[in-house]
């Protein structure tokens, strides 16, 4: 057993999420990752935006900030720059991070500020009733795409990589043990780190699209995902229709808050 109680605000339970929602699985992986690193709760700051996943911050016993739609990364940037000793973790969703907050997402990656961004990708706006999101697959139904989504989608991880993130990984709620390891690596990485978690929504996405139960949706993850290590040895044709999970990017680049501290040092020494 793992002592989750050490890290949760028990009086806020049960969780607000629907039956079968994977967001709780991600929360647990996150808490185990924090524990295995040995972070002190006082030094962890979790910042979320708006949406199902963003309700997570209310449940964790640390410094928690539930902000406005799309802006979690901006608040987190202020926190990290003002107090770099805090471990700042951003909790966000596909709509929050890549639609309304898309500009902040790419710019935080560009500046390579040491935030860990966990994006719960459920391919839909769950909390508001299933509207189409930037990751809703083409052809899939949403309340605002009643004839099927006809727009191209964002590749959340690819976006972070292209914008300059230090660490990018993709996990699923089925591959829970791997997810914990990816989150741990992301927190430990000094730089902008993204973990995109595929967390299917059985309610707003699943029912409308006849994707079956959460079990069917998780089985689909089990059958359809290949690890990045394995994907390297596969041809483009073999990878067609597959989802690559695991570590996707891990590079070292100068980190924004550290660079700024160096500037303060430079000013202090009069250089």
């Amino acid at each position: 057993m793992f002592e989750y109680e050490k890290y949760i605000r028990k009086n806020k339970f049960p969780l607000v999420w629907c039956s079968g929602c994977g967001d709780g699985i991600v929360l647990k992986a996150l808490l185990r990752a924090i524990d295995s690193i040995g972070l002190e709760k006082e030094n962890v700051c979790m910042v979320s935006g708006i949406g199902c996943s963003s309700r997570l911050t209310g449940y964790v016993d640390c410094n928690t900030l539930h902000t406005t739609h799309g802006r979690a990364i901006t608040f987190a940037t202020g926190i990290k720059m003002a107090k770099p000793e805090l471990n700042v973790i951003v909790i966000t969703g596909d709509g929050d991070a890549t639609a309304i907050g898309g500009n902040h997402y790419i710019h935080a990656a560009r500046r390579n500020i040491d935030l860990t961004v966990i994006i719960f990708n459920n391919f839909i706006y769950g909390m508001t009733g299933g509207q189409v999101s930037p990751t809703t697959p083409v052809g899939m139904l949403a309340s605002t795409a009643p004839f099927g989504n006809m727009e191209n989608t964002f590749n959340i991880s690819g976006l972070a990589q292209a914008a300059g993130a230090s660490f990018v990984a993709r996990g699923t709620v089925y591959h829970t043990v791997m997810l914990e390891k990816l989150i741990k690596k992301a927190i430990l990485k000094n730089g902008f780190s993204v973990v995109e978690v595929l967390s299917p929504c059985p309610t707003a996405f699943g029912r409308r699209n006849k994707s079956g139960t959460i079990i069917d949706m998780m089985n689909e993850q089990k059958d359809n995902c290949v690890t990045s290590a394995r994907a390297e040895r596969m041809s483009e044709r073999e990878l067609e229709g597959k989802t690559v999970i695991g570590e996707l990017v891990n590079i070292d680049r100068p980190e924004c808050s550290k660079q700024y501290r160096k500037l303060i040092e430079r000013c202090r020494s009069g250089l």
Binding site: T67, R71, T74, A76, T77, G78, L86
Partner: peptide, 19 residues
């Protein structure tokens, strides 16, 4: 910051740390 939405967000975040 990248825009004014981000600027005010960062300001609020920083203030929460005591700045």
């Amino acid at each position: 910051m990248e825009d004014e939405l981000a600027s005010i967000g960062a300001v609020i975040g920083a203030s929460l740390t005591g700045a």
